[in-house]
Design a protein around this nucleic acid. Structure first.
Length: 854
RNA sequence: GCCCAGGUGGCGGAAUUGGUAGACGCGCUGGCUUCAGGUGCCAGUGGCCGCAAGGUCGUGGAAGUUCGAGUCUUCUCCUGGGCACCA
């Protein structure tokens, strides 16, 4: 028995595809196009199983669409800027550029060994000046269009990475990479005006009907639209008004205090004269809002002594507090507190003994005795204690109070969003330099276009902490482009999400002089199918949607949405292993002894098996793709990635699973190398005489083509594998002596090969060649089914009595009710159950069931 | 706390509009091949009762609609994920 020699075969077919330029396309092609893109990797040095899954999925789609006649753009590149390169530079004394290039070469080799259908001529790396010079130009255009600005702001500071983080990069109050508790720091930073597009980014989500619902929902929540009112209250003894935002202006009669953020202008104004307040503000800023949330989130505040006039109650004034739970970044940085109907306000009121006045009571409650305990009342009800709002529901009261406030000129209806502008400055070396210059006389001056790119210096020193660009002896020293006086370059670089926000556009014309070529864009964009991890639901995927809109505004392209279809793949998981001391163990350090117990390979000590979780180096539950590919081949690894779980669900990596895939690969190979029915020559006409099995298999072939095509279109890849396995089982069961079996066997093989080709391309080519075919499978079209063969002449009817299955009937398709009833009532089990009684009713669903009701 | 997604054999998972639950695979059991392991081949494999034929229960739990519910409705439990002082 022969084994499939994947080592020899896979390398050979990879060369053949390359020589034949099977997957190369031009910047502009004719006919229908399909752009398949997988999220490009960070060049860490080695691929992991998550990459293997991602690229297997993408390759399947790309090869399938090509077979279906589309011009397919399927590129690959490197998201090459980022902090690990700097860490490597410090640890191993190797320049980031060199480290990155080495990693790229190593990973490129690994990807090539997977046999992916990339157009390698389009490869890009974002750390090349040839790439980032274009985004420097874009930034200057954004600046001109008012989409980029610099401001001093409280920012998230990661003390380990020594850099600023965007809100999207702070997870549970910690840096998304370093895990360090994020601090608040006031810095002058560059921002992109993503908030200009809040409404557009939100409302357009509706049209992204080929995106997963949950990603759209996550973006919706992140953008966080809320409708409310901006109110202007008089402050006793002051000219200026206090502006607050509220979604519950209907509860205005329940207001018993006002509160402002520690970073509000009034707080800053009062603090120099009030040491207690100054200390409180400092305390709040040191902790930061996010860390406060991690701890018990105790509400605290300081009374400013100022009094706020109630808009509808002339005699009533409210104390003004500086409070730690009021965020400067949301709304106006000030609120009115209505403790009865807001839990935070209630907690605060109880702590500082403020009044709690209920203004909405449940319908069934007695308004005179309704009181608030420790839980604020948030439900709908009837307004009480509220003057002209008494008796109204929340919705009605909200409308009436809004009109009254507007008429009085102290309120405006307003929509607020949670989304903040995107801070893009990073105090790092290994990123794209921000192309501006600071001049004492002229202020901030953009680098003139003809001086782009602003290139990173090669010689840098990582010995001092902080940003090497900052301590570089010469790099930042430059003459002001405006006045010629000595000036300084901006030493911050862009957030690396800047690069990934437009790389999909660059892939359409990677060698064009322009960063984005309008004609290539018009042909290839948008990306028809984008595939990647769910972790980018509100990071990269939101930034890219904004960036595309910004580029549209600046005339680079003419579309708003970059990705018309999105598939988010699940994680690759593996069991975890720990020895007696709780140390994690690699899978290869564990085996089963003769007694079937799990023990360490080294000295047979007991091992506890933990549940399957995402593969990660820290838990050591990782399997190296290179190891797998060299043991079983790329096709086996690819098959396993597709066969066990639907793509959007987590996949458990198991040794048994990969072994099973490997056995199937060999089984397929033997179907052509050692066929149990001699292979007949190609292209013979369909035999007129076929045995029963052969005819059934012939129909099965066509049903499989139909089902597999449908499942591929719907991304049900695990079902695709199941269907093809079913067909191969059937072909293997064909009897050699039966009429037509030889023809059906060969026909079935040809179909199977073309169906597996997008999943196991090397094996498909090898089998195809063994059948004597001359054209590559990669250049062959998708098989076509004959609709006539999908129809069966006989169907199996389920026969039920009172809804319970009691037997089946083999009948002609579309048999009429009378004949079906006759046959059904004759079944032994039915006769027995009826016991002489007449059925009350008989329900017949043609070709499916007949249900006899007694 | 709020918002999602999901609970189906020992395991991963199938099951168009409500219409034969468990496709396909893994694992397991028995047999053949083999010096042996592996591979390969044949048979079996949801639980319970039964030698069998067959019966009976069965899609997290409870109720409901229906001739018929994994699928629809209500309540409830559990798991995973996202957001989280957003006024």
């Amino acid at each position: 028995m022969t084994r499939y020699n994947f080592k020899e075969s896979e390398a050979r077919w990879q060369d053949v595809w390359l020589e034949n330029r099977c997957f190369s396309v031009s910047d502009i092609e004719d006919g229908p196009k399909y752009y398949v893109l997988e999220m490009f990797p960070y060049p860490s040095g080695r691929i992991h199983m998550g990459h293997v899954r991602n690229y297997t999925l993408g390759d399947l789609v790309a090869r399938y669409k090509k077979a279906r006649g589309y011009k397919v753009l399927h590129p690959m590149g490197w998201d090459a800027f980022g902090l690990p390169a700097e860490n490597a530079a410090i640890a191993n004394n190797i320049p980031p550029a060199e480290w990155t290039e080495q990693n790229i070469s190593a990973m490129r080799q690994q990807l090539k060994s997977m046999g992916l259908s990339y157009d390698w001529d389009r490869e890009i790396a974002t750390c090349h000046p040839n790439y980032y010079k274009h985004e420097q130009k874009m930034f200057l255009d954004f600046l001109g269009a008012g989409l980029a600005y610099r401001k001093e702001a409280w920012v998230n500071w990661d003390p380990i990475e020594q850099t600023v983080l965007a809100n999207e990069q702070v997870i549970d109050g910690r840096g998304w990479r370093s895990g360090a508790l994020v601090e608040q720091k006031r810095l002058s930073q560059w921002f992109l005006k993503i908030t200009d597009y809040s409404e557009d980014l939100l409302s357009s989500l509706e049209e992204l009907d080929r995106w997963p619902e949950r990603v759209r929902l996550m973006q919706e929540n992140w953008i966080g639209r809320s409708e409310g009112m901006r109110l202007r209250f008089e402050i006793e003894g002051r000219e200026e008004r206090l502006e607050v935002f509220s979604t519950r202006a209907d509860t205005i009669f329940g207001a018993t205090f006002c509160a402002i953020s520690p970073n509000h202008s009034i707080s800053s104004e009062l603090s120099p004269k009030n040491p207690e307040l100054a200390a409180f503000i400092e305390d709040c800023n040191r902790l930061g809002t996010s860390e406060a949330a991690i701890e018990t989130a105790e509400k605290r505040g300081i009374d400013t002594g100022l009094r706020i006039k109630h808009p509808f109650l002339p005699t009533k004034t409210l104390p003004l507090f500086v409070a730690n739970f009021v965020l400067m970044e949301y709304g106006t940085g000030a609120i009115f507190g209505c403790p009865a109907h807001d839990q935070r306000d209630l907690d605060f009121a109880r702590k500082y003994n403020l009044d709690v006045i209920p203004v909405v009571a449940p319908k069934e409650a007695d308004p005179n005795t309704f009181i608030i305990g420790e839980v604020a009342y948030l439900e709908d009800g009837i307004h009480i204690n509220s003057g002209f709002l008494n008796g109204l529901s929340i919705v009605d009261a909200r409308a009436i109070v809004a009109t009254r406030l507007e008429e009085a000129g102290i309120g405006t209806r307003e929509v607020n969003y949670r989304l903040r502008d995107w801070g893009v400055s990073r105090q790092r070396y290994w990123g794209c330099p921000i192309p501006v210059i600071t001049c004492d006389a002229c202020g901030i001056v953009p680098v003139p276009e003809e001086n782009l790119p602003v290139e990173l210096p090669q010689e840098v020193c990582f010995e001092k902490p902080g940003n090497p660009l900052e301590h570089h002896p010469t790099w930042k020293k430059v003459d002001c482009p405006a006045c010629g006086a000595p000036a300084e370059r901006e030493t911050d670089t862009f957030d690396t999400f800047f690069e990934s926000s437009w790389y999909f556009a660059r892939f359409c014309s990677p060698n064009s002089e322009n960063g984005i070529d309008a004609a290539a864009m018009a042909y290839w964009m948008p990306v028809d199918q984008y595939i990647g991890g769910i972790e980018h639901a509100v990071l990269h995927l939101l930034y890219s949607r904004f960036f595309t809109r910004a580029l549209q505004k600046c005339g680079y392209l003419d579309m708003a949405e970059p990705f018309s279809g999105l598939m988010t793949q699940g994680m690759v998981c593996h069991e975890t292993y720990q020895d007696e001391s709780g140390e994690w163990l690699f899978p290869e350090e564990v085996h089963q002894n003769d007694a079937g117990e799990n023990v360490t390979v080294e000295n047979g000590l007991p091992v506890t098996i933990g549940r399957s979780v995402k593969m990660s180096k820290s838990r050591k539950n990782v399997v190296d793709p290179e190891e797998i590919i060299s043991t079983y081949g790329a096709d086996t690894a690819r098959l396993f990635m597709l066969s066990d779980s639907p793509p959007d669900r987590d996949l458990d990596w198991t040794e048994a699973g990969i072994e099973g895939a490997w056995r199937y690969v060999n089984r397929l190979w033997r179907m052509v190398s050692e066929p149990h029915i001699p292979l007949i020559e190609a292209g013979l006409p369909t035999p007129t005489d076929m045995g029963e099995n052969a005819a059934a298999a012939h129909r099965a072939i066509h049903k499989t083509i139909a089902a597999v095509s449908d499942d591929l279109d719907r991304f049900h890849f695990n079902k695709v594998v199941a269907r093809i396995r079913e067909l191969t089982n059937m072909l293997e069961g064909l009897l050699p002596e039966e009429a037509g079996a030889g023809w059906v066997y060969r026909d079935g093989l040809e179909v199977v090969i073309r169906l597996i080709a997008p999943m196991m391309p090397h094996l498909a080519e090898e089998m195809w060649q063994a059948l004597g075919q001359e054209v590559l499978v990669a250049n062959t079209t998708w098989p076509v089914f004959e609709p006539d063969l999908l129809e069966e002449e006989m169907v199996t009817l389920a026969v039920q009595v009172n809804g319970k299955l009691r037997g089946t009937l083999e009948v002609a398709k579309d048999l009429d009710q009378n004949n079906v009833e006759l046959a059904a009532l004759n079944i032994d089990a039915v006769v027995k159950l009826l016991d002489g009684r007449d059925p009350r009713k008989i329900i017949y669903v043609p070709n499916k069931i007949v249900n006899i009701v007694v």
